[in-house]
Amino acid sequence: MAAHIRNQSRRGPPERVTEEPIPLRSAPGTVTNVFLTNIVGYWRNVSILWCKNLMNISFTITVDGMEGDLMSQITCKVELKPWHFWSKKGYKSFEIDVQNHDNENIGHQLEVYWDLRSAKFSGSSPEPCSDYYLALVSDEEIVLLAGDYKKKAYKRIKKRPALVDAILSLKKEVVYAKKSFSTRARFAEGKGEHDVVVESSTTGPKDPEMWISIDGIVLIHVKNLQWKFRGNETVMVNKQPIQVFWDVHAWLFCNPGSGYGLFIFKPGAAEAELERDGSSRSGNSDSSAVINPRRACTRAFRSNGIEKQAKESRGIRFKEDQKEDEEDQDKI
């Protein structure tokens, strides 16, 4: 799970920014679920974006093109008006491109069915937490089914289940708050959801700090956040290892409301990755254990466009250490 969190508080002198702050009350929260879905014999990424504002709730389904082609994405958006009860249940169709036996692109119809008339929501999250279904149908098969009303979905839609179920590969949530941010996340299929809370203290005379709690237990406490604004740790949740990555540079060095804090919760231990990296190279295993967590953190942040910043921060640190060594040599 990846969470983008916008902080409204700040510490230190203001710097020049190019993005206008978004008022907290009008900022829309979003939840994006990305599924690996088999459509007409090909695996495609299908994302469901839930959005909520003062007027309505909407969801947008995006289907990637052939072989992950982002240029040929097809989207289907549905807005649920609060005063239109009938709009919370419905049907919509759209077309995507598929290849026939002659490798020619032809149109293929997909159908979307939804029923959110009894849907329940948790807090300010735009994604329903229970009593709903959202289905994607291809060739008379339900290739993707979200929600807990699965039996009702099969009964009402009258389509057969797909031979291969869609796989949830990523969940991303954007949360707006001031000092305390909360959400719910599932770290394993078939398991229950966990309460995730991120709290920060970036103002006042004391050094900035940050706390990350899961199910009411503080698992990560970061002191001197101005020096540790990027990092990663592995924690245990119900005997399951969870890798936690964070980047809160914008909270400390940008104007309030102008930048996100990024948090990634990745199930699984990092030791397996370290062993693979260590077996493919020669050298001291201790040095690999020190370097590889940084590399893992860089890979996790790469898709969010901040790998360059991470490299620059390490480069600056290296130059500072080098300068200190030169000063020590001069003294000698």
Results as ranks from 00 to 15, higher is better:
325 D>S: 15
264 I>Y: 09
315 G>R: 12
219 L>W: 02
264 I>N: 08
7 N>W: 01
142 I>E: 00
189 E>V: 12
141 E>D: 10
18 T>E: 14
93 S>N: 04
204 G>Q: 03
47 S>L: 04
48 I>C: 15
288 S>C: 07
240 Q>R: 09
156 R>F: 14
16 R>N: 15
204 G>L: 03
230 R>F: 15
38 N>A: 08
120 K>L: 15
81 K>L: 10
322 Q>N: 11
132 Y>F: 09
56 N>V: 03
267 P>T: 14
44 R>P: 02
326 E>Q: 15
55 M>G: 06
311 K>W: 09
189 E>H: 04
171 K>L: 08
183 T>H: 08
270 A>L: 11
181 F>H: 02
247 D>L: 03
89 K>C: 12
111 E>A: 00
154 Y>C: 04
256 P>Y: 02
31 V>D: 06
128 P>K: 01
89 K>Y: 02
125 S>N: 04
229 F>E: 14
187 F>Q: 03
168 L>T: 12
102 D>C: 06
227 W>P: 05
112 V>K: 06
324 E>T: 10
143 V>S: 00
66 M>V: 10
285 S>I: 13
193 E>H: 09
241 P>N: 14
20 E>F: 10
281 R>E: 12
154 Y>G: 07
167 I>C: 07
145 L>H: 03
109 Q>S: 11
165 D>I: 01
228 K>S: 05
164 V>G: 14
195 D>G: 05
100 N>Y: 09
86 W>N: 14
99 Q>F: 15
129 C>H: 13
278 G>V: 01
261 G>Y: 01
3 A>Q: 01
8 Q>M: 04
326 E>T: 05
144 L>T: 00
316 I>H: 09
45 N>A: 09
205 P>G: 07
68 G>I: 10
132 Y>R: 07
94 F>M: 10
